[in-house]
Design a protein around this nucleic acid. Structure first.
Lengths: 220, 220, 220, 220
DNA sequence: GATGAATGAGCATTCATTCAT
DNA sequence: AATGAATGAATGCTCATTCAT
């Protein structure tokens, strides 16, 4: 009984330390960017030695992947809850879009991770790394949830059932991502923003976008 | 007369060399990625010494910006031509979207540059650098062209004039970019693609997307 | 009685574990080379924790020395048996040479250890370490056995007694080692071998060498 | 004329710098050993930046190979001169042995390099590296010179012509190397020396060895 | 005794940038 | 203008060793 307790505590502590490292990495990478963040800085932030980082993560990229994984997991958590709420399909779909925007605004680090990972070209790593596999599974789940909301809508008559739900899901996801990215850039204060007209209002724009999508999907 | 000619020739030669460097950078960056490309490799590809690169570009980032600038300039060229064609506003808008996708597919390096530059955080550089200013001006022009097509549509009655054309332009641009990015990722063979279902067809999806936007914008 | 038995068993088990570690080290070092072999790998191969290795060996070098010690002990075992066989001095000497070559060919790891240790420069360690002292004692024994065979030969008239047996022993040992080393390199498939002519036959060469030595030592 | 001179001077300067780096590496590696020597130390000794070292040598191993190459080249220089002297074949062969020992005693760093390189296992590197190829060619030349002295001796009647000169060359080389190695270890003050009896005299031993070989090779 | 998590010093190598010629 | 040799700061990662449990 006692021993079991010890083993369990150890396991929990290990998991906590792992999380602490990811926490630290989030802080530093958000501050500096992936390339500029150094393992030294992250170790210092985590109040651990550099060697310990490598005990938990194979390399810097794996550590960043863990951020991606955490972000996509959180997103799926949010989406799952929405899916279980009592709403029509079209309302569910809209809620997911709105919460996606909200999530990215509140947790910009994860959107950076999302973007960054699409630029990784080490195919071997992405194919074999355990964390990378988890990430892909999370993305798959996200798409699955969206598809589900569309299917619900098609059944309850709020969404036009002449589309292929999977393809529609990807389209919605991809275009929403485009909008969210603009919002993200604006928030990050990037000089390269599409828009100089500061009066532009993300919320108004997003509302229009949701309206467009709603129109497009609506049962005729 | 002769001297002027010489000066002009020199100027032209200089411009040609500058372009050759950008050409070389494109080749190397497409092959290796932004971070992995080295000035050595680019110099070798350009058949010039490394020092010469710095004669034409203040630093590596300025060189990369030149690629961005070239890409956005090309895109504006394409869009400008479309704008001058004899079509309704809604048709012009659609044509721009379609040609954006086409351009990115045919010139993936520029889309990489677009993405990459949104990750630059050196605010000082982006604010003051001559090339960065040009880039921003190009983006402004792109948005201007799209806004123009919308305004034309609102005038000829093919687009609902209850929207703010500028805001609509940004929304269209941003969401289209999201779609194009998925197409780009798929083309680059990235492991991290949103979608494993290979049967997904970019063209079908894009057609649906255009259809949605058309619906949303159409005059009631 | 019981306790004594237990203590003995414990002692035996400890010794067995020690041997198991050396076994593991041999496997890994032969595979990777001295510098490249890591304590982690050795621990894994031994199916023990890294910490346990340090319970049995003060450090990595001590572990390596244990291999040397084992090898030189084995060699002395072989040589001792030869010494006790009923042969003339010259025959004994020749048998030792032949068996040296045979041993190295069959157990290349030990020859690697022999070579490696001549490159250790930590004088303090070599002087004071218990294992290092054992190793030196083994080497001394080897030389002693060879000297003995020469003395036997000088007495039975098969070896010229005008030489100093100790000096002769060292000379025979050293030159034989040179030959054996070439054989070893060839076997290890090293690119840096003295000889590209693959037709070179170690056995023929060794026979000539033995013949030379025999001639040189023979009573006139 | 002037330009040619400049180019030539540059080339000479470059070669001198390269040599200076090898000089520095010799000093440091002799002091610390290959593994313990750091590129920092070598750079400091060479009064150059670390980066410059990598301008001249691909990596640490290539730098060490350059030492090997220099050593084997020097040795061949010595042997070539001997080969051209007016002596009988047996005398030439003996002179080569004697000068080998002399060279190693006077330049122990090269013998260390010789030994070290037999422990390199990076087959790719050894096969393709330009310097490695040069090294192998030097070794081949050494063997060629020795073979030549034997052939001369077989012709002038001082060496028994019933042996295969190539095989004999390798045997002589290998066994001599064994003797030289003992002398080298003794000189380096290594604790692991075969011999504790300090009264042992390398010169006496070497003389005996030469005598043995002479006997063995002598025309009957 | 055994474990294995934690350490942190240590190091080769890279590469953007400069500058004398 | 062009060169390319020289720089040196910067950093990811390794691994022998320790020590609390």
């Amino acid at each position: 009984m006692k021993l079991l307790g010890t083993a369990e505590r150890k396991k929990r502590e290990k998991e906590q330390r792992r999380e602490a490292i990811v926490d630290a990495a989030e802080v530093i990478i958000l501050k500096r960017g992936f390339e500029e963040a150094t393992m030294d800085e992250i170790a210092e932030q985590a109040e651990l030695s550099k060697g310990t980082l490598y005990l938990y993560f194979k390399n810097k990229t794996a550590l960043y992947l863990a951020i991606y994984e955490r972000g996509s997991r959180m997103l799926n958590g949010i989406f799952s809850k929405i899916l279980m709420s009592d709403r029509t399909g079209i309302e569910l779909t809209r809620a997911i879009g709105e919460n996606y925007l909200k999530f990215v605004r509140e947790n910009p680090i994860y959107f950076n991770a999302f973007i960054h990972y699409e630029s990784i070209s080490d195919s071997d790593f992405l194919t074999n790394n355990k964390m990378a596999i988890k990430c892909r599974e999370n993305v798959r789940q996200t798409m699955s949830i969206i598809t589900r909301t569309l299917q619900i809508g098609m059944q309850d008559g709020t969404i036009d059932d002449s589309y292929d739900p999977k393809e529609l899901a990807i389209m919605i996801w991809a275009s929403t991502r485009g909008i969210v990215q603009v919002a993200h850039l604006k928030q990050m204060g990037h000089e390269f923003k599409i828009l100089d007209n500061t009066e532009m209002n993300i919320d108004t724009m997003f509302a229009s976008f949701i309206h467009f999508l709603g129109n497009g999907m609506a049962k005729k």
